[in-house]
Design a binder for these strands. Structure first.
Lengths: 199, 199
DNA sequence: AACTTATTCGACCTGAAAGTCAATCTCTAG
DNA sequence: CTAGAGATTGACTTTCAGGTCGAATAAGTT
């Protein structure tokens, strides 16, 4: 991966790195305190900047939220891609994917934000589209598993929403560095999910 | 149950009924749009009132959110109480309880709000305490099931958070009157949860 | 009818947080 | 070394939603 350190004199790279730092830092604050309980001043201060400087990197607070969402869905798209062709059947494939999702949340500090309603117009439409795309990808895998007999037959949508909900709820209670390690949680989630849906 | 219609001339009863209507209406709006995306003017309008009139029934917007939380946890406490002594083992007891929880969400229109961070001081402390109480009650049942052999042994907290997350996520996607009926969802959730945790 | 109390409202106040901008500091290319 | 682009800031404006208040209306009581 290319980091800012690789090209300390390339201003575009530096700019992109700093912009990313803003998004990341905000994402963490949004996850902990919620979007509306996090002011731009707070985001700025946590980076040692003034609020005005933030607007050198982003157009608006809403844009930050948008980028937070896109970042997660981008990583999820990657995870979906990475299980293509993997796994002997639908269930195995689903376990791999769900494990990857759980790792994103616990290891990479990403978080499914629920604040879609705070986005307007194009922003919201795009995020909803991306979310729909992921949901469909997961649902397709589940349906595949139902066909090949590895996953118990029932309404695929309800099945998917059940275990995706657990993922979202992670944001609320999981604290890195706590008693429960990320790997432990991810493993337990995969286990509980897979047993719940298996034939 | 006592309704406002029972005592149309009792002012205290009328007042309480109207106050409840405010809370309920707000709860629905909070669930759909989120707390911060719902203005007091909007809540008022949806009841055919002016904003000022709202403040005759509640002290602040935060109090409404608080009451929304309390309403849900109250109903959950009832559900916990109603399964006391029921069920042959931990798993059966858990299925009853979880089914009751799911019914609260789908049938009674209640919703676990995630916006705990928008509450301050005493309000937040109380809500967190109530949530903790429910979590402990559920965890105790799970631990009981692990002891009597009906539930697979693993970390109880992770186990509980997994299926409680699914419940919370319901708020985001479930729309009454849609393709999926409330009963259907509740049944599917109980099934998927119980298979996931059973020995 | 007169009086009291409950309920509702329009108009206003206020504070917090998003967003802007001209001025300033800091790099680095030449 | 210095000019000019890049980066950052303090101070300001703007907007909007929560909350207040006194007046007006409705309802109930005697």
């Amino acid at each position: 991966m290319t980091t800012n350190i690789d090209q300390p004199f390339n201003r575009e790279v530096q700019y992109a790195a700093k912009r990313l730092a803003v998004i990341r830092s905000a994402a963490g604050a949004f996850r902990r305190r919620g979007y509306h309980n996090t002011s731009m001043v707070l985001i700025a201060k946590s980076l040692g900047l003034s609020k005005a400087a933030l607007y050198y990197y982003v157009k608006s607070k809403e844009e930050i939220l948008y980028e937070c969402h896109i970042m997660v869905y981008g990583a999820m798209d990657e995870a979906v891609k990475s299980v293509r062709g993997q796994g002997e059947n639908g269930l195995e494939k689903l376990k791999l994917l769900y494990g990857a999702f759980a790792a994103l949340m616990t290891r990479d500090g990403l978080a499914l934000l629920a604040d879609v309603d705070s986005l307007k117009g194009e922003f919201q439409a795009t995020v909803l589209a991306r979310r729909g795309k992921i949901e469909r990808a997961v649902t397709r895998i589940v349906e595949g598993g139902m066909k090949d007999g590895s996953i118990k037959k029932s309404d695929p949508k309800v099945t998917v929403f059940f275990f995706m909900g657990a993922l979202n709820w992670l944001n609320v209670w999981y604290e890195p560095g706590g008693r429960l390690s990320g790997e432990m949680i991810a493993d337990a989630f995969v286990e509980q999910m897979s047993v719940g849906v298996a034939s």
